[in-house]
Design a protein around this nucleic acid. Structure first.
Length: 130
RNA sequence: GAAGUGGGCUAGGCGAUCGCUGCGGGAUCGGUUUUCAGAUCGGUUGCGGAGAGGAAAGUCCGGGCUCCAAAGGACACGGUGGUGGGUAACGCCCACCGUCCGCGAGGACAGGGAAAGUGCAACAGAAAAUAUACCGCCCCAGGAAACUCACUUCGGUGGGGAUUCGAGGCGAGGCUGCGGUCUCCGGGGUAAGGUUGAAAUGGUGCGGUAAGAGCGCACCGCAGGCUGGGUGACCAGUCUGGCUUGGUAAACCCCACCGGGAGCAAGACCAAGCAGGGCGAAGAACCGCUACAGCGGUUGUGGGUCGGUCCGGCUCACGAGCGGGCGAUUUCGGUCGCUGGCGACGACGUCCGGGUAGGUUGCUUGAGGCGGCGGGCAACCGUCGUCCUAGAUAAAUGGUCGCCCUCGACACGACCCGGCUUAUCGGCCCACUUCAGCA
RNA sequence: GCCCCCAUCGUCUAGAGGCCCAGGAUGCAGGAUUCUCAGUCCUGAGACAGGGGUUCAAAUCCCCUUGGGGGUA
């Protein structure tokens, strides 16, 4: 990470995504969740400086057009808010059902929910460690 | 101008900015290798260029490709069903034929066989596939009194013809003074008519008949033959037959044709890791060569395999030993034969268990698009030129802003093609039909 | 992605071309019995996923659509 951070990059590269089904299963298995009217978020510490994201949209949301749109909006929300989020987390984003939600809704929900989950993880680490 | 029929094209656009996935080449960082140069892999960054559909959908057909053995025969099973052509192939397309619908342009049709056989048809109806029974209609024999004629022993007897009955019952008919009384109960011809039903044994008309009937005739329909046209489905004409065999095959079935199974999560490779175990049957014969280790061939046996079964075919095995008993031989070390046991092992199959975390490939140039010429009514084919047009893998086309318009439907690849079906806001174009008006 | 299967009252089901405007159980509603409740008895409402075709006739046979469920690394 040599980049001087003078201009913060808003790219979303492949290393910033959760890509293996084992990693997905790990995050789901911890059952560390939080949600609001727009989003449901699973989180786990990943031991990296950056946070990573994964998106899951079930078939109940509709056909392929609707599901692709949801996934694009969720990824866009993570891309735009990635510097406001705590680092070192694996996040799985699941949209709620009544989705008239916009990217801005997702951005607000994502930042608040991710900070809540990061605090919870830090607390449990302290309790376990000491 | 109105209404309509058939076909084709299109699938909001422009700009700014932040992003996503491949490809090309550049810079930089890290790993491996190397004396260096360099090679290779991965990351980051910026440049160039590319980046979802007409249905990408449903998965309803057909094919390519891959593996199963090289994909063979019969049966079973499944599918298709007018004819001719197109095609890699098809259940698709084109042209034509037939039936039905529409004034018409046109549209619809799983459109072979019901005279090979089996089955089915509720209810209603005389009857539901066999041509007969029932009602009905008609004829003949026969019958009675009344009427009339003749005869008479006046009790009746015989004849005539009209009407009627012509079949066992709430029967029909005659006479009557309405209380009764009398008579009959045999034979045959028909399929015109019979209220039903989805469907009823050729139809209509005329003749004919006791009543009727293709019994006869005309027209229509049907069947068969012949002639002509057409590659053919079929069409036209003509003759004959009086006519007989209804429906259902998206019921079984018959005929013709087609189909081996599974599917890119197929399949192949890399490195890493690991763990194998149980069970199964057989482990022959003959010939040839030989260095006597073995090799080759034929037959056979056994296992496996072609996807549901059988055949045929293909493939694998048919050996190294251990010790017991008996017999022969011996230089007493052993050797050979027979018998019946044990059994490691290789190959094969099957079952159970573990693992299937990961990467590369398959992976996009193809029955390809566009244009010209030629062949064909057309579907389509041939030839020449030209173009390269997604390849992701927790899975790429988006977010925000501005402007314009007709205010934007259905909907997003996942191995690839050819079709079909289904969903769909609009817009544009071409050809044609009917009606109205004008010239 | 690929390959299959299924659909009948609220629920579980029967049905195999006509006897079915679909039967049974349970649940639901009303009534009777009881001082009241339960139980019992009587009565009633309630379904062939949707569309098209074959047939005289379809829950049943064929096609399309819709909605569920399963298998497969």
């Amino acid at each position: 990470m040599i980049s001087p951070q003078s201009k913060p990059s808003f790219r979303l590269t492949r290393t910033q995504r959760i890509r293996k089904s084992g990693e997905f299963a790990h995050v789901y298995g911890l059952r560390n969740t939080s949600g609001d009217g727009h989003l449901l978020v699973f989180a786990a510490a990943n031991g990296r400086p950056q946070s990573r994201v994964g998106v899951s949209v079930s078939k109940k949301h509709g056909n392929a057009i609707i599901r692709s749109g949801l996934k694009r909006r969720l990824r866009e929300a993570f891309r735009l808010t990635q510097h406001d989020l705590p680092g070192g987390l694996d996040l799985i984003l699941i949209p709620r059902h009544k989705s008239g939600s916009t990217v801005e809704d997702y951005q607000q929900s994502l930042t608040t929910l991710a900070r809540k989950l990061a605090g919870r993880i830090a607390r449990s680490n302290k309790e376990c460690g000491g």
